[in-house]
């Protein structure tokens, strides 16, 4: 799975410009999928038809289930190119200026830029504002600047795999939410039989407006939806208290600031984890939300929940997950899908 994860996290795909990452995912899932389509906003929808379980011979015992992982990542967008060829920018999704200074960003065509900070600030000890940052792509004037207003870039960091006796940690940009894309692809690969009609949705524009999952779910009209996404942890020095730790298993969401998980979905995940002896944790996230918040409000309402992969340093260029948690997430999803 590591090579798959490397490929996914290192691909360019800020919200709204998901063509490249969609092509990478499409190449992975095409041989595995029954039916595959790209819906109006650009989400990739892969359908795995349910089949009656051996022995029962009865069709229609399963449910229509959406598994969602968003393929877009946070990034920045050029808002202005000044006379000297420096690009001012705004954020795409929840980027903090704190992680910007000195960071490198890459545009769709591979152009790389460095983020600089204005030196003449009133209080240099304070975190700069976005208006005080700029991207330097090595241009000397507006005319020779290779990037233009509206061009989007993502942070650049290589994928790192740290093998330790106590567990393997994976570090990269865009673990949010490519790690869940990897979990979905791996689940699809290993899912031989399911009584359910399962739609694997690789959705667009989560980081900005939760748009892709909302519209895809409308099109599919499922009985149940599960967003697979990263969540924060409470196991770092002087961090906000949170009862989720890296390496203690996938987290079953109870609630976050945008939604309360449907009890049926929450209990289903917990029950399957217990039955299969898969480690899991319960999660209450005080700040942030996922596509499940949008999916549960589609049409007449969709019972929705969230399977979270614990992740440190979310929305920085170095997001860290535990490989065991990732593998257990796949295992848990397989358990959910295999039985009625």
């Amino acid at each position: 799975m590591r090579e798959l994860i490397r490929k996914l996290v290192e691909t360019y795909g800020p919200s709204g410009v998901e063509e490249q990452i969609r092509a990478v995912i499409r190449a992975e899932v095409e041989p595995l999928a029954g039916e595959l389509r790209v819906d109006p906003l650009g989400s990739l929808v892969v359908h795995k038809q349910g089949s009656p379980s051996a022995g029962s011979g009865q069709a229609g015992e399963g449910q229509c289930i959406v598994l969602d992982a968003h393929m877009d990542e946070i990034g920045v967008m050029v808002t202005y190119v000044d006379e000297k060829g420096f690009a001012r920018f705004t954020r795409i999704g929840g980027v903090s200026p704190l992680t910007c200074a000195g960071a490198r960003v890459a545009f769709a065509d591979g152009t790389v830029g460095v983020i600089g900070v204005e030196e003449k600030r009133e209080d240099a000890s304070k975190t700069p504002k976005f208006e005080q940052l700029y991207i330097d792509v090595g241009a000397t004037s507006r005319d020779d600047c290779p990037v233009h207003v509206g061009d989007a870039a993502v942070f650049v960091r290589p994928f790192v795999c740290m093998e330790r006796a106590q567990g393997t940690r994976l570090i990269a940009k865009a673990m949010d939410d490519r790690i869940a894309c990897a979990v979905l692809i791996e689940t699809l690969r290993r899912l031989e039989h399911t009584p359910h009609d399962v739609y694997f949705v690789f959705s667009v524009q989560e980081e900005t407006t939760l748009s892709g999952a909302r519209t895809s779910t409308y099109g599919i009209n499922p009985d149940l939806a599960i967003a697979v996404d990263v969540t924060g942890t409470g196991d770092k020095p002087e961090c906000r208290p949170m009862a989720v730790e890296l390496g203690k298993g996938p987290a079953v969401k109870v609630q976050d600031s945008g939604m309360i998980a449907h009890p049926r979905v929450r209990d289903l995940l917990v029950q399957r984890a217990k039955e299969a002896d898969i480690p899991y944790q319960l999660e209450v996230l005080e700040r942030g939300t996922t596509n499940a918040a949008a999916m549960q409000l589609v049409r007449a309402g969709v019972p929705s929940g969230c399977l979270s992969i614990p992740c440190r340093y979310i929305h920085t260029p170095s997001e860290m997950v535990d490989e065991g948690d990732v593998q257990n997430s796949v295992q848990l999803l397989l358990e959910v899908l295999r039985t009625a």
């Binding site: 109006p40 906003l41 989400s43 748009s211 909302r214 519209t215 409308y218 099109g219």
Partner: peptide
């Protein structure tokens, strides 16, 4: 508008 139904480019 872009959020209507199944999504509108």
């Amino acid at each position: 508008i872009h959020l209507a139904r199944e999504g509108v480019p």
